[in-house]
Design a protein around this nucleic acid. Structure first.
Lengths: 148, 148
DNA sequence: TTGGATGCAAAGCCTTTGCATACCT
DNA sequence: AGGTATGCAAAGGCTTTGCATCCAA
């Protein structure tokens, strides 16, 4: 976690952005909830507990900046808002996918090397220059299945 | 194309929805641009040429209905609006993915059986009940590569 | 000190909704 | 005839932006 923080700090400074208290708070909240795929507003509510005068716009601006620096990615799970997760460079397993229950809407992140060579095979076959991929699996989660 | 139209008509009638002229026009425009991943507004502009008094709300309502009947799927390519493509039941190759150029934003749909057994392997491994999947590949398209 | 960062409120953009009217069955 | 479908305009929800103020370097 410390590594990530100082890594981001470096990245910011390298492009003459400032490593402010607000940005650090936002980053920490993201780190502590890495698995939850927070939306901007959820993140805002979390950070507001530690900095009650935080503005929602600041959260949006920080998220935009972090995306630009390839620190986080935005994903749309179909609920009309963007959700965020850390990118490959920040220790996120590149080979994971999201299992989305179409019944209750829950999102499970799964690490699985089944997708490991998919990207390279696709790259070779089609001569694409691939930088990343994103896989969503839709279905019914075990909890919902059990409640039938 | 005729098959799809009458198939949808059946689906609508089965649930006591009406197969109206407007819905048919919208469906046809979707079919004729199957590969373009139209947004609601793009679709609206197309259909408006044939029915100038068409309202944007009608397009949205038709798209919502078609989704509910599993005729089309909504996808977010990161440009802040939903885009639509036909679902598996309407002749769409289940094993395709989208290649999205992070430089120019172009979207290429690729049919490729490399993903064919991925779903079933994941299903077996994790005991999920899978109904569908969605794969996005990000990178630089050939056109952008060439212009460096 | 100085330009970027932030809070607040307003504006933007895509999408949904209410209501009166028009249309399909 | 009766209820669904539609057009129009207003409202909603998420996100971005303008501006004055504040803060990191």
């Amino acid at each position: 976690m410390k590594d990530v923080l100082s890594g981001v700090e470096e990245k910011l400074r390298a492009r003459e952005f400032k490593f402010t208290t607000r940005r650090e708070l936002i980053l920490k909240a993201l780190l502590e909830n890495n698995d939850k795929h927070l939306s901007a507003e959820e993140l805002y509510n979390l950070v507001k507990q530690k900095a009650p005068d935080m503005g929602l716009a600041t959260v949006y601006r920080a998220l935009e900046l972090f995306q630009e620096l390839d620190i986080i990615n935005a994903i749309d799970f179909g609920d009309g808002r963007k959700r965020y997760e850390f990118g490959v460079e920040v220790g996120k397993n590149h080979h994971h996918y999201h299992f989305i229950c179409t019944k209750c809407g829950c999102i499970n992140e799964v690490d699985d090397d089944l997708t490991e060579d998919l990207e390279s095979r696709i790259g070779k076959k089609h001569k694409f220059t691939i930088t990343d991929h994103q896989l969503k699996i839709f279905g019914i989660c075990n909890k919902c299945l059990a409640s039938y």
